[in-house]
Amino acid sequence: MNTSPLNPTEQAQGESAQVTTVSAPAKAQTRRFGNKVRDAGLAYLFLLPALIIFGVFAYYPLYRLFWYATHTQSRFRNKPASYVGLEQLKASLTSNDFISGLTHSGLYMLYTVPLGLLLGVMLAVSTHRRLKGIKVFQTIFSSTVASSVAVASVVFITLVNPEIGYFKNVPWLSLRNPTSALFAVSLSSVWQNLGLTFIVVLAALQTVPDELIEAATLDGYGAIRRFWRITVPLISPALLFLGIVLVVSALQAFAQIEILTGGGPSGATETLLFKIADPRGIRPLGVRASYSLGLFVLTAIVAGAQYSIMSKRVHYGD
């Protein structure tokens, strides 16, 4: 035989790369044989616990919220509730009480999200370098991950409590003053979330290739321009992700309010969830259910954004 023994390697490899993509049909991950009915049965069996729990403790409660929002409960528990249609829902969601809750939650977001992100980035950037003992600083900066909202609130009692707090005489941190109380409380969230923000930003920074920064340095970018034009765009998915996490946790602020101010002074720190949970029991169930539906809509907007970002991240193989 007189065929050439030549078989260019690069051709073969290029080809093999194609083979896997071309010949792989969609939906290949499922098994094609075995008993299909049995497989489906197994799938339902595997999903059953999840679906039951979700049904009873997520979807049924949603239905109940609608029910409560469209009924007024008698003060006496033995009397049946009466159907009032959307009247109560409408009245609740336009009430001053709800608007003030919404405002407080919005302010809480405004106080915690930008400041939290900024501090987290500062901490991460300052430890993202080769220096002796940098591990110690990294451990310090991630330490607040170990504190819960409740612990952070107790910690902040030592700082801002009007009687025993270290900063009780600092006017802009006063819990007695309606204009500063919410901000003072929000600092506990900022502090508590520092660990999380720091860890996520640092992890993102570590994915930025050194060569890119070096190339930018050689191209003559100064440190500040290099940071804004190269580092920030490259870690922006992480910042976006964190932004959403912080927005959600601001929307759900409760423990810090209850522990630090109990909603006061004169309701100035009553966030939306505080009014819904209503620890002092001053609002009727139907009103709180209406507020809950308001919170549901807000959560849906944020969660929608979160999901679309998450699925994008997953796409990149994370």
Partner: peptide
Amino acid sequence: SGCGKSTALRMIAGLE
């Protein structure tokens, strides 16, 4: 690549 040879083989295997 893409000519169907792998699919033919996978049919023998029972994977298609």
